[in-house]
Computed example of a mutant assay.
Amino acid sequence: MSDNYGDMPATIAAWHRVVESKDPVELDALLADECVFRSPAVHTPQEGKGLTTTYLTAAMVVLGPTLTYRREWYADDSAVLQFSAELDGLSIDGIDMITWGADGKITEFAVMVRPVKALNKVMELMAAELFK
């Protein structure tokens, strides 16, 4: 994605800058303290900026090298970003559902991934990254 973010919401433009830089330090200014991360790999919501940062940082390592956002839809306080990636020869399709508050900080980040074989590979590699 280029530096020209056009008419996309400022929060999403900031998210794209984080993904491009792969610098998790930038997440501190983007995530609300009470942010919740929802993953298809984890049964319970991961609550708080710290846990959300941990999961998003691991995702940048695991998916970041091949992650491409293909389409995006925006509302006043939320967006859906469709992505693709490749892991160990498996094609992954997914969406990030992002919600933010009046201050522009992300309050909820939910991820959905398909197909199940790709989800299993994401779970395996995310666990390795999270628990190393």
Rank of each mutant, 00 (worst) to 15 (best):
T99Q: 14
T53D: 09
R70W: 06
A10E: 15
R38A: 13
W73F: 15
L30P: 02
A59V: 02
V111Q: 09
R38S: 15
P24R: 01
D103H: 04
V113G: 00
V80Y: 03
A59D: 03
T53M: 12
R17L: 10
E72W: 09
I92F: 05
P65S: 11
D93T: 12
G50S: 01
A79F: 05
D3F: 10
T107L: 06
R70Q: 13
L67M: 15
T54E: 13
M8C: 14
P45E: 01
S21G: 07
T107G: 08
L119V: 03
A75I: 08
W73Q: 10
W15I: 03
V18M: 05
T99W: 02
L56G: 03
P45M: 05
A41W: 06
I106M: 05
I92C: 03
D77Q: 12
G89V: 04
L87C: 06
G6F: 08
M1D: 13
K49L: 00
S2I: 10
G50E: 02
E20S: 14
A13M: 06
L87A: 08
A79H: 04
M60R: 13
L31G: 02
R71Q: 10
E129I: 03
C35F: 04
M123H: 12
G48Q: 00
D77I: 02
W15P: 05
A118P: 00
I12T: 00
A128Q: 14
V116T: 14
T68A: 14
Q82I: 15
G48L: 00
T44K: 15
A32F: 02
M126A: 07
S21W: 04
H43Y: 11
T54L: 15
P115K: 06
C35K: 00
R71W: 11
W73I: 11
L30F: 05
A102P: 02
D77H: 10
K22M: 14
V61Q: 10
L63A: 07
D76R: 10
P45C: 10
V113M: 09
Y74T: 04
I12S: 04
R38F: 05
P40Q: 08
S2E: 15
M8G: 10
D28V: 08
V111R: 06
E34C: 07
E108R: 12
L30V: 01
K22N: 14
C35Y: 04
F83W: 11
